[in-house]
């Protein structure tokens, strides 16, 4: 079993969101970078669990980004995984990134490719579906549970207002979310081991982007909360009904 886990570097969940250069660039000043939580907590940890269940499993991590992505990929290696690949290029749109990953995957003979259900910065939910189409293999999005049974994956996925269980022959691309695994904290042994695990740097293939971000904006600030005394919940109900027309 050979697994490829896609890792993205994102701002910490508590990072202040601000923009510079006339609102065209994310302000990275003072921002802590983390492994995208969906990539870390769910897809990477599930891959590690599969390796714990079957020691012959090989896990490769991949990230697309310039050298500043290395601390994050090292941290991912500290959790687990055998080696990492960094495609040395500035991030562009999802099509470009998925194209780079698919190029590596094409030569890697992976049985399973995991992504997070989205990154918490661009919220595209796109990389997994795009990789699958580039490789012409099935894609199961929004998994909440993932099991293996020989050459078959048994996946529970979210649908509107419920869940669906499906079976699919490997290889498959799966996007993972809450439920697939539980967050782990890297231990000292893992951190030490990660230092000597191979981190291969490859150059990108020529590939285009289909979209580009022109500018960013922040939502309008709220006008301020209207406080209602605790002994007058009927007043709150009235305001919601008549003023906010919320029901």
């Amino acid at each position: 079993m050979k697994i490829l886990v896609c890792i993205s570097k994102t701002p910490d969940t508590t990072a202040k969101i601000a923009f510079t250069d006339n609102n065209t660039k994310f302000d990275t000043n003072g921002v802590q970078w983390i492994i995208n939580p969906y990539d870390e907590w769910y897809s990477l940890v599930r891959a590690i669990e599969l390796k714990e269940a079957d020691a012959s499993t090989v896990i490769h991590l991949i990230t697309v980004g310039i050298a500043d992505a290395e601390p994050v990929i090292r941290k991912a290696l500290a959790l687990g995984g055998d080696e990492a690949i960094r495609v040395n290029t500035e991030n562009s749109d999802a099509y470009y990134i998925a194209g780079q990953i698919a190029e590596i995957a094409k030569h890697g003979q992976y049985d399973l490719i995991f992504t997070g259900k989205e990154t918490i910065d661009y919220n595209g939910s796109s990389i997994g579906g795009m990789i699958a189409e580039f490789l012409n293999i099935p894609y199961v999005a929004l998994a909440t549970k993932f099991e293996l049974n020989a050459s078959k994956a048994i996946i529970t996925r979210e649908i509107e207002g419920g869940e669906e269980i499906c079976e699919v022959e490997l290889p498959v691309v799966v996007s993972c979310q809450k439920g697939v695994a539980e967050q782990r904290i890297p231990n000292m042994r893992g951190i030490m081991a990660a230092r000597t695990k191979p981190l291969k740097v490859t150059e990108p293939v020529a590939f285009e982007s289909l979209t580009s971000i022109i500018s960013f904006e922040l939502p309008h600030a709220k006008a301020g909360v209207k406080l209602i005394p605790a002994d007058q919940p009927e007043e709150l109900a009235r305001l919601l009904h008549e003023e906010a027309k919320a029901f």
Partner: peptide
């Protein structure tokens, strides 16, 4: 579109 999990918006140009 929404970015940063709803904390901001991005104006995206589709070039195809």
């Amino acid at each position: 579109k929404t970015v940063f999990s709803g904390k901001a918006f991005a104006n995206v140009s589709v070039n195809t």
